[in-house]
Design a protein around this nucleic acid. Structure first.
Lengths: 340, 340
DNA sequence: TTGAAAGCGTTACCAC
DNA sequence: GTGGTAACGCTTTCAA
């Protein structure tokens, strides 16, 4: 059988209260007994049952992470950074792939509440915010990450998506592009990026390509990027540059453009978003708007822990700034292109 | 405060024993009380505290997954499939990035044992097997996945790595290649793949390129692939084909070869391993030896659950078979190449 | 068909 | 300094 605090107490000839105190470094106990108890614990290969201590009101040292899809490199990298920081701080991460499906979100939420996780980090869609409000009402720590946030008070860390779109647009404008397509999903963050993109264009008297439409295909970003690109290329008034709202979409754009015999960036400039590892894997290496994924992971975990420890009175929002990473997939508008 | 089974019992005018029975569908209770209790649970928004029931000997419905690195697409895809199947079966997954670091492995193992996870799935390196033996001795369910296994009795699911290497070699041999390089790490699975590769070559009287060496750089597979490729390209007796032991390494190989002005596959055939999502993202699309990641995830989780439920008397091993996925990065040896 | 009570492995308060 | 003991929220026998 498992060895418990009783076994240790008996073997050390002390009470369980004493053992508990040496485990937690609380109370006053003589150095002699402390040493003895520690020795016995080693000998018996005893390790405390955290379920029991959590039942007594201690933390479970476990955080639930709800994320749309680990296969998406942005999220797997984010998950990795969150887990890294969690590990440093003594927390384990339970990972949940939601697929933007609110039924799954709810199932996970309930299950993890039953397991008494110390808090939730939500990277998921959560277009429906009732559940988030519920958590807050139940006083369960929540932090939202990597999506922009609702109008009510909630802890969050995210980048300025509006600015990200703005940066992307300015880069293309500086390169002389005037006819730009966008590939985006109908999600909050993508809408914000689009808004920023629009904003930059408008201040230069430009508009995005008429053939723009939000993509519907949720399952496969690459396919979606390909599909939307085809639409741009078959349509009249072909864009000379495309802004894809994430790197995966951009990969699809590039694939399809190549299949059409276009050269990137000579015939079409492509800019992505996220700066995931695939940006350097595809050919040409992708110019993209970088999210500081590592900092985001760190910040969100730090924020979570400070909330758990009651160090935050007020809700707080951390906004990180995106930055342009220039690689080879964008270039100045080639005038010859206009004949297309 | 949290609502407990006592609150429900009081509100329903029954004992907590009765409430417990309706929660677990055990014992005999009249339909009338069952309905009443259920109604009250809803009204009070009651959900059972799983810590308490786990303390009483029930499962925690949580599995620890130790994996080297979520950023590696092979592992993130595997983790996703495991989590998917776990979710279907009512289990949550705690994810742990070990970076092949046995100190981290040990920390995670201990921590999760304290949290009384129902079992461990080990995708990590675990070249040191003492810890695995310890788990088995403690009768904690363990399944090893995606690495070949030690000489002692342990549950495992993996592909036949030897055969994978063999398949890769045969493909290249059929294409007429005679001078082949390999890019591999000094890990069990890679060694097996290499052994299979060798075996196929030898039965055709061939040997791998003399410049072969295991790569040491652990952090960055792409960089490692690039580096090893450079070695092959600068050395005399240049290979006409390269077998990279995973897709990421293959991506590095292709990058470097292109930088040297080589055309893939005209000047150099490249074959990868894993068939992760990046195989279709890079250019040209990568010919690779596919691991059936989805099946692996499913099998490993199913095996884990059957062990937890005591349905397995003996240890079992599931060996899945790799298969060749032909894309554009390999082609028949171009005779003109030999002048290189 | 229902309920009382013992126990799961801790922590924390209060005596001694 | 140390120990007894009442929680924590649940499951499970055993009586009623």
């Amino acid at each position: 059988m498992k060895v418990t605090i009783y076994d240790v107490a008996k073997a050390a000839n002390v009470s369980i209260a004493t053992v508990s105190k040496v485990i937690n470094n609380t109370g006053n106990i003589s150095d002699k007994t402390r040493q003895k108890v520690k020795r016995i614990m080693k000998e018996l290969d005893y390790y405390p049952n955290m379920l029991a201590s959590a039942l007594m009101g201690k933390q479970t040292k476990t955080i639930g992470l709800l994320i749309p899809d680990l296969v998406n490199p942005f999220f797997s990298e984010l998950a990795r950074r969150i887990e890294d920081r969690g590990h440093e701080l003594g927390y384990n991460i339970v990972i949940c792939n939601t697929d933007y499906d609110s039924a799954k979100e709810n199932k996970y939420l309930l299950l993890l509440k039953q397991k008494r996780v110390d808090g939730f980090i939500l990277a998921s869609g959560f277009e429906d915010l009732k559940k988030v409000e519920e958590l807050i009402k139940e006083e369960i720590p929540v932090v939202i990450v990597a999506r922009d946030f609702p109008m009510f008070s909630v802890n969050a860390v995210a980048i300025d998506d509006f600015m990200g779109g703005y940066v992307a647009a300015n880069h293309l404008i500086e390169l002389g592009h005037q006819n730009m397509g966008v590939v985006a999903r109908d999600l909050w963050s993508n809408r914000e990026r689009l808004r920023g993109f629009h904003y930059a264009l408008e201040s230069h008297g430009l508009q995005i390509n008429k053939n723009f439409d939000f993509i519907k295909d949720i399952n496969d970003h690459i396919k979606a990027g390909r599909h939307m690109t085809e639409k741009y290329l078959t349509g009249d008034n072909r864009p000379t540059a495309i802004f894809a709202c994430n790197d995966l979409l951009a990969a699809g754009v590039i694939q399809m453009a190549k299949e059409w015999g276009l050269q990137i960036p000579e015939d079409l400039s492509v800019i992505g978003f996220d700066n995931t590892s695939i940006a350097t894997v595809i050919d040409p290496p992708l110019t993209t708007v970088a999210q500081p994924i590592e900092s985001m992971g760190r910040e969100v975990m730090d924020l979570m822990v400070s909330i758990i420890n009651g160090e935050k009175e007020e809700k707080s929002r951390v906004t990180l700034l995106p930055s342009l990473v220039t690689r080879k997939s964008t270039q100045a508008l080639n005038v010859a292109c206009k004949t297309n």
